[in-house]
């Protein structure tokens, strides 16, 4: 510290405030460095959260895609009475708050709930139920749009080339493939970034159901910024990777 600072002076307040800012910055950058070192030292707590996130999102996405892609395709491809209403309902579910999903699923799978005997609360499969409910409308709606937005000449083109019922269906699916992948990636983004469902249904149990997002919430609450930052960097890297893939696909599709 310089002599100026120790000597009381009319400008002392300003100087003191400036030094506090320097300290705050140092505190952040220290946390950042510690965070980086946590990642590279393969800190077990950090990687346990990463692994829980990957297992959870893998499970919920598998179920979501298995149900969502075929149903979303049919929703966009077939015309049947009530289709318009169904489209509106699915679109409305796009913005369902995570905590509401958490609450509803909690009510069903908690001990006193109708599915309580399945012992799903505070387990990865239980959280996956909630995330699937969150991701399904995204995949349904975007897949249906993908099919609806295929070129209006596609059907007559396929017919003139001699395609029949199944050929028509699978070729339409293939024409929409990039948009459907886009739907999957968008849903994946929502699932890895959410906190509400994971927190309420998983309970943030260390080594078990603690995911990246719930761990960040906890560490930040405890003032443990370095761990929070380490996890934040990983989550950011995740979403950058995902969005990179998304914009690559979008650009390719626009070509």
């Amino acid at each position: 510290m310089s002599n100026d600072e120790q000597r009381p002076s009319p400008g002392g307040n300003r100087v003191r405030r400036a030094s506090r800012e320097v300290n705050a910055l140092g505190y952040l950058s220290e946390g950042f460095l510690q965070g980086i070192s946590l990642i590279f030292s393969m800190n077990e707590e950090v990687w346990s959260a990463v692994s829980a996130t990957l297992r959870l999102s893998g499970l919920s996405m598998a179920v979501t895609l298995l149900i969502g892609v075929p149903l979303g395709f049919l929703l966009g491809y077939c015309s049947f009475p009530g289709r318009g209403v169904l489209r509106v309902v699915v679109d409305a579910l796009l913005s369902i708050p995570t905590v509401v999903v958490g609450l509803l699923v909690y009510a069903f799978i908690s001990n006193r709930g109708p599915l309580g005997s399945w012992q799903l609360l505070f387990t990865i499969p239980g959280m996956a139920v909630g995330q699937t409910i969150l991701a399904l409308p995204i995949v349904l709606s975007l897949t249906a749009s993908a099919v609806e937005n295929t070129d209006h000449r596609l059907r007559s083109t396929l017919l003139t080339l001699g395609a029949r019922r199944w050929g028509l269906l699978f070729s339409t699916l293939r024409e929409a493939r990039h948009q459907i992948l886009l739907a999957a990636l968008t849903a994946y983004g929502r699932v890895t970034a959410e906190v509400g469902v994971s927190m309420m249904l998983g309970g943030n149990i260390k080594w078990h159901t603690r995911t990246i997002t719930t761990a960040i919430t906890l560490e930040t609450g405890k003032g443990e910024f370095s761990a929070g930052i380490a996890l934040g960097i990983l989550l950011l890297a995740f979403s950058l990777l995902l969005n990179g893939a998304l914009s690559f696909l979008r650009r390719r599709d626009a070509a």
Partner: peptide, 17 residues
């Protein structure tokens, strides 16, 4: 009969392949 007749549309469309 669509297998015996084919048509090039006025505004033809290439499949995304």
């Amino acid at each position: 009969l669509r297998r015996d007749v084919t048509m090039l549309l006025q505004d033809p469309y290439l499949l995304r392949r």
